[in-house]
Nucleic acid binder design. Structure first.
Lengths: 339, 339
DNA sequence: TTGTATGCGTTATCAG
DNA sequence: CTGATAACGCATACAA
């Protein structure tokens, strides 16, 4: 399926390349009759201008950005993507989506591939493996290209550049404190993202809240990778350790925890309270609805895209920014009422 | 942030453009010393080769495909995207993601934009508005470009080209019949995608199953756009019409329906049975788990990508294919046991 | 009205 | 070892 070129059309029609070009570009220099004839054979041969040559000649920007995310099926990053795509397309940008599956190697390959393709900028939220193994520094090599890179959610502190996060520490602190205020005595912490930047911050917030409120234990941290052992784990936590509340770092896990606890025969919130992160359909339409650290994922996406595009178009030449999107606790029915 | 070119480097170093080019490409013709010197100043000036010029000269393929989907936050298309990205990146392709929000205008703009950017092929699942208003024919214009287009899930029958769907009619028929076999007397049909190709087929399957099994009514179709009026609608359906089962065309709606029914005080499946489409976390971890028409979304994505790439690379020159992915009913606890 | 010449930034060929 | 030159496909100033 070789592409037809202007030159070939010129030969076919016994005209010069420039005449063809002008005709197809609807130049006033060309008479209507010729235009029609040219247009016809162009269509006939399925002519489509070579974008590379055209852009090279016209010196236009490609207007593409690359997005590198750990996953897209968990809910959160899908919403982020939605926000990004909306914002980007408003400004005429297209988005290359690369999904790392939380693997470091895939992340690196994605970035190399994006750079090879001359994207105008990159949005990235680091893979779990990258942050866990502390392999984040490799990204610094990509900065030689003075290519705008905006990090969001899972960021790398030491890396200079624009960043967007929520106030993870405070959010976890506030949520934990809320559980305490509603009378919970032993609060556990469930996480699938233990070794990520945001996972660490949320854990810290939880631990400090426990400590400052004079709880006698040092915290109960449950790291999980999938939901296979969830039932067993929860049973043990509730039976043996008398845990009566969980703070959970993501929506899906909060949802699964809620349903598993109920399947075990416990009442939520009376026996066990639950607070999750990120509000979506799962938390809103659960029974009971889940009290959540309201995390505007779509908003985070559009904000990130907006900052990136400003950089690309040099509208923003100030020093790197760190935007912190404030969360608020959305009270559902998975927690007891304040007394 | 003007890009440095070879020509500029040549001037700076008092060398010719070709020498610089060879040095940077590690040609054996160039002595080590020169290479190092060139490399150094190239880095210094942040030189990065112009991809457009390079590709133009080398005649390399871009290896990009465009993906046009109605949404990405509902679960299904996120999984499709995951499958596509995985398959595409395996073959070295990158994926432009365009989200139409089910709007026709956005879909059209997305396609134009993708074609302008010379993608090698397009994967599309049509917007609800496009199918509802029967505006699908506009896509035919894009076929002049003899650009491979693969339609999946929401396809346009009259459009020649590769298609991938599930057996929507049969799936709905089988699911409805299953409800009947478990003793349900009055089955309702809830849909958010009434006017799409798949929505119509599923509705047909449901209606025919009702009819062939001698049910006295003509079917109860509930079109919903969002979940605001869901509670009211369900209450009416169950109280007034004595509906004791629902077949629901998507996962999220099945999930919301389940929880709303329970919130109304009814037991699932004893009072009301539920079957949904598309199996994911929502259906698996619900209480009770939801009986589902198992729709391998990720598989559909990778299959679509695979077919598209075969077309692009002309490995497949056969006439257009219609791949039908067979579903199976995954029995959960939202339906009664077979007697 | 049509055609010629030039250049966008690269790389490949070939001559020096 | 180095450099001049052509070519990739297109658009445009300028010449005819």
């Amino acid at each position: 399926m070789k592409k037809t070129t202007l030159k070939e059309l010129a030969q076919i029609l016994n005209l010069s390349v420039s005449t063809i070009s002008k005709a197809l570009n609807d130049s006033i220099e060309i008479p209507k009759k010729t235009k029609i004839k040219v247009r016809k054979t162009a269509d006939e041969y399925g002519y489509v201008p070579n974008y590379l040559a055209r852009s090279l000649k016209l010196g236009v920007k490609q207007k593409t950005i690359g997005l590198v995310i750990p996953n897209v099926t968990g809910g959160f990053f899908a919403k982020v993507l939605h926000g990004i795509e909306k914002e980007a397309s408003t400004y005429g940008y297209k988005v290359f989506v690369c999904i790392t599956d939380d693997k470091h190697i895939k992340e690196k390959e994605s970035l190399q591939s994006l750079i090879k393709d001359n994207v105008d900028g990159i949005l990235i939220s680091f893979a779990e493996e990258t942050q866990r193994k502390n392999k984040t520094s490799y990204i610094e090599n990509f900065f030689n290209h003075n290519l705008p890179i905006v990090q969001f959610d899972r960021v790398y502190d030491k890396l200079v550049g624009d960043k967007i996060t929520i106030n993870d520490f405070d959010s976890a602190y506030t949520a934990t404190e809320y559980l305490i205020e509603t009378g919970c005595k032993k609060i556990g912490f469930i996480t699938t993202i233990s070794k990520t930047s945001i996972g660490e911050l949320r854990k810290e917030g939880y631990l400090i809240a426990i400590k400052l409120n004079g709880h006698s234990h040092d915290g109960f941290i449950f790291n999980i990778e999938n939901y296979d052992g969830l039932k067993k784990m929860l049973k043990k936590a509730i039976c043996e350790h008398q845990i009566d509340a969980f703070l959970i770092t993501d929506e899906l896990s909060a949802f699964c925890t809620l349903n598993t606890i109920q399947a075990l025969g416990y009442k939520v919130p009376n026996d066990v309270s639950i607070i999750g992160f990120t509000n979506g359909y799962l938390t809103r339409y659960s029974n009971p609805s889940i009290t959540t650290v309201c995390h505007q994922a779509s908003n985070m996406g559009s904000t990130a895209a907006n900052i990136l595009i400003s950089r690309i178009e040099s509208k923003n030449i100030e020093s790197p920014s760190h935007t912190i999107i404030k969360t608020k606790l959305t009270i559902g029915n998975s927690t007891k009422k304040l007394i």
